[in-house]
Simulated assay, not measured.
Amino acid sequence: MQAASAPVETAVTQAGANVTLACPGVSEHSLVFTLEWRARARLVEYAGESTTVWEHRRRLSLEPGSFALRIRPVESGDSGVYSCLVNNRPQPEALVRLVVQDVPDPPGRPLIMGFTSRAVNLSWAPPQDTHNSPIMHYIIQVRVGEEGDWDQKNAIVTEANETSHQVGGLLPYTVYSFRVLAVNAMGPSRASKESYYMVTLREVPDGRPTITTAHNTSATSIYLSWRAPARDSIHGEFLGYRIEYRPREQRHESVKEIYIRDANVDSHTITNLETYTQYRVSLQVFNPEGPGPSTTVLVMTDEGECRSVTIPDLDDLPHQQMMNMLKEFVPRLLADDHKPPRIEISQELPDTTNANEKFLENITTGDETENYRNPPGAIAQENFMPGARKTKSD
């Protein structure tokens, strides 16, 4: 009988188990003078009272009486066809096929096939040996940075046994690497070699700087200080800050820009501004892709230097003459500048009759008529011109 035509008995087991393979045609009552177990090579030999183990001495042995081959424990590499030759017979009575199921070998190193700012396409080779159990799916593990830990808790499980996958949910301008595990009915394989490092593409920042201080330092300057947004919101190389400003009442065409090309700067003074003007000031961070969202504040420049105006003594003037003289002073004062100046009054008005109060209620200042309800005298004089200050004279 040829070995090729001998019947085959199959034994299936899992790696790590203990296995006993019976010698076909031999029982406890058989008369055995010599016996040899073979697979790819000679394994165990029995002759008379002597037993020799040629391979895997710590795991292989003969069972007394039945001459069965014991393998403890069995490994995936033990899979194969075994033959038991009794009393120098040239052919075995039957062959024994041992099938050892184990976790698969690791897949090939994953390759980066393409990427964006938020996703990467991976491809890898399947395991060389699945160890008698087909691949069901793969597990992809992600590592952020060159020194980070592998994120095993949030590993990606593929839906099938395809050897490519798109990994999403990544962050822009971030270093990543990947590794893959194959899974069969026995469990997951060892991890593959890690992919080569890659950096996702940039995006414009989505973090806003926080303005901590914004105030005028003079009639023509504004001071800003700020705190940078979180680093992971920059999404690229942090190049610096962009300041945009314009008078609040003017159109967008009047916007001016300042670029601060140093990410470590945290304050700046804007100069050469208009006096006593409310400005709309915006601050952004920027990277090579452009600026991010802005933080905006409104800041007023100072009123400027005081102008001293001397009003003649009004004590002895008739009411009509006093009214005519003040009507002449006010428009001329306003004509010097299109914004209300600060006025230093060097003469406190004396108490007058109710006619003076009626006059103060109807003084025309430029384009508007200010109506005042305060009593006549120093307080009324202070109020009729916004920003005026009074000083008492002897």
Results as ranks from 00 to 15, higher is better:
176 Y>W: 10
169 G>I: 10
116 T>Y: 02
155 A>S: 11
102 D>M: 04
192 S>F: 01
203 E>P: 07
98 L>H: 04
205 P>G: 08
201 L>T: 02
147 E>H: 05
148 G>K: 06
179 R>H: 04
123 S>N: 11
151 D>K: 15
152 Q>E: 15
109 R>F: 11
184 N>D: 12
182 A>G: 07
99 V>A: 05
129 D>F: 09
173 Y>Q: 12
171 L>D: 15
173 Y>F: 12
142 V>E: 03
130 T>V: 07
117 S>V: 03
185 A>R: 03
109 R>P: 06
162 E>Q: 09
106 P>G: 01
111 L>M: 14
158 T>N: 06
202 R>G: 15
151 D>G: 14
149 D>E: 15
193 K>L: 15
202 R>P: 10
154 N>G: 08
105 D>G: 03
197 Y>Q: 14
200 T>E: 02
113 M>T: 09
110 P>Y: 01
200 T>N: 01
116 T>L: 05
155 A>Q: 09
98 L>F: 07
124 W>Y: 11
96 V>Y: 00
103 V>I: 14
184 N>V: 03
115 F>Y: 08
165 H>P: 03
154 N>C: 10
104 P>K: 02
198 M>E: 10
128 Q>N: 12
108 G>P: 13
170 L>Y: 04
181 L>W: 04
99 V>Y: 05
114 G>R: 09
175 V>S: 01
112 I>G: 11
140 I>L: 14
122 L>H: 02
174 T>P: 01
204 V>H: 10
181 L>D: 00
189 S>P: 07
201 L>K: 01
138 Y>N: 01
197 Y>F: 14
186 M>F: 05
113 M>D: 14
195 S>D: 14
146 E>Y: 13
167 V>H: 09
116 T>H: 07
106 P>M: 05
118 R>M: 03
155 A>E: 06
112 I>N: 10
142 V>T: 09
100 V>A: 12
205 P>I: 11
176 Y>F: 12
159 E>G: 02
136 M>Q: 14
118 R>C: 01
204 V>I: 15
184 N>P: 11
112 I>A: 13
140 I>Y: 05
99 V>Q: 06
101 Q>D: 06
151 D>Q: 12
122 L>Q: 07
165 H>M: 09
186 M>D: 01
127 P>G: 03
168 G>T: 15
153 K>M: 11
119 A>W: 07
163 T>V: 11
122 L>G: 12
98 L>C: 11
192 S>T: 13
121 N>P: 07
164 S>D: 09
177 S>W: 06
135 I>S: 12
119 A>E: 08
200 T>F: 07
126 P>R: 01
157 V>A: 08
175 V>G: 00
176 Y>K: 04
178 F>P: 03
106 P>L: 07
161 N>C: 11
129 D>W: 08
142 V>G: 01
135 I>A: 14
170 L>V: 14
193 K>N: 13
119 A>M: 12
124 W>T: 13
172 P>N: 01
117 S>P: 05
178 F>K: 02
171 L>P: 08
160 A>G: 07
124 W>V: 15
201 L>E: 05
201 L>M: 11
199 V>Y: 03
133 S>W: 05
116 T>E: 00
184 N>W: 00
192 S>K: 00
158 T>G: 02
99 V>D: 02
132 N>Q: 09
170 L>D: 05
146 E>H: 13
110 P>W: 01
